[in-house]
């Protein structure tokens, strides 16, 4: 246990004094501020003469001012935070010869990964929380709406899911840093994984769905249904899809779901036909729960592979 705490402490200190953290923070802060500002302008012009709808405050995070919303921004670029924080975790120590020093101390090998992962998660949590609060602050000033209890609660859940999501990418990056001894190779691999899951999986999901349902004799609605199901199934291997689907349900209760009716399971269809108002918080949580579980599960899988590979690896300073 002592190993994890010592490494966690050192890693945190390293992060806070590193330019990498500083740049990351500055970059994210800038983009989020711009997004929040644009969203704020957008909302306040739209709200001029109408009664304020429910969940106006959440719209700060979901309405797109300059092409993308805060939520979309985190879904798309959030992975990069995790990857940038983690891609050189182990291989840098190996290349600098500090890994053999660490490993010759009385700690278990997994303490090293755990300590570093936890430090990264703490950094991610700090980054996201402070930025979320800043955006909320700006919104408060611009649209002058005080968030309700439920909105605060939804934002909190959103924060937790987002931290989990980016932590998954951190875990993946740590795995790359174990597999690839060369720092730039692992950076490239991380980037490739990001591109793959951000662009290829959803494109690929469409392609697969279309390819599998070319039979024109099937009635169009049936084909559409199958296609949608396949698309959904394929894109569920993408953590990005898991994340987007779950967060949208949480922070955009009016939209209720990102999916079209045909893609819904019977539970969701039921809920959508039963209630005409926004999806209640409890329902939202119920809908996203499997997504979150899956996100956590794939993070653990990543970790499992990391342990297995790291435990067997030959430790040589050269």
């Amino acid at each position: 246990m002592g190993g994890v705490t010592a490494i966690l402490k050192k890693e945190l200190a390293d992060h806070f004094t590193s330019y990498r953290f500083l740049f990351l923070f500055a970059l994210i802060a800038m983009v989020s501020l711009i997004t929040a500002y644009m969203a704020g302008v957008n909302i306040s012009t739209q709200l001029v003469d109408v009664a304020k709808p429910r969940f106006v405050f959440l719209m700060l995070f979901t309405s797109s001012g300059i092409g993308f919303s805060f939520v979309q921004f985190v879904a798309f670029f959030g992975p990069l935070i995790g990857l940038i924080l983690g891609f050189d975790t182990i291989n840098r120590e190996r290349n600098e010869g500090t890994l053999s020093k660490l490993l010759s101390q009385p700690i278990y090998r997994d303490s090293i990964i755990n300590g570093k992962f936890l430090a990264g998660v703490a950094i991610i949590a700090i980054l996201l929380t402070s930025i979320l609060l800043t955006v909320a602050g700006i919104g408060l000033l611009m649209i002058g709406v005080i968030p309700g209890i439920e909105e605060v609660f939804r934002l909190f859940i959103y924060l937790i899911i987002s931290i989990t999501y980016i932590s998954f990418w951190l875990g993946a990056a740590i795995l790359f840093s174990i597999i690839f001894r060369n720092v730039s190779t692992s950076a490239l691999a991380a980037l490739a994984a990001w591109v793959f899951f951000s662009f290829f999986v959803s494109l690929g999901a469409n392609a697969v769905a279309n390819a599998l349902t070319t039979d024109t004799t099937i009635s169009s609605s049936e084909a559409q249904m199958t296609r949608a199901k396949i698309r959904k199934a394929v894109s569920l291997i993408s953590p990005m899809e898991l994340y987007s689907d779950s967060t949208i349900t949480i922070v955009d209760p009016m939209r209720r779901t990102t999916k079209s009716m045909v893609q819904m399971g019977w539970m969701e269809q039921l809920s959508i036909t039963r209630f005409s108002g926004p999806l209640p918080l409890g329902q939202s949580i119920l809908v996203v729960f499997p997504y979150i579980t899956t996100l956590i599960a794939i993070t653990f899988i990543c970790f499992g592979i990391s342990y297995a590979v790291f435990m067997r690896q030959e430790i040589r300073s050269v």
Partner: peptide, 22 residues
């Protein structure tokens, strides 16, 4: 170890403190 590496940004005291913590 042969060719032992060090954390370049730590000073000697901090390095030893880290080892002591481990």
């Amino acid at each position: 170890p042969e060719n032992m590496g060090f954390y370049r940004d730590l000073n000697a005291w901090e390095t030893l403190r880290f080892i002591a913590e481990l």
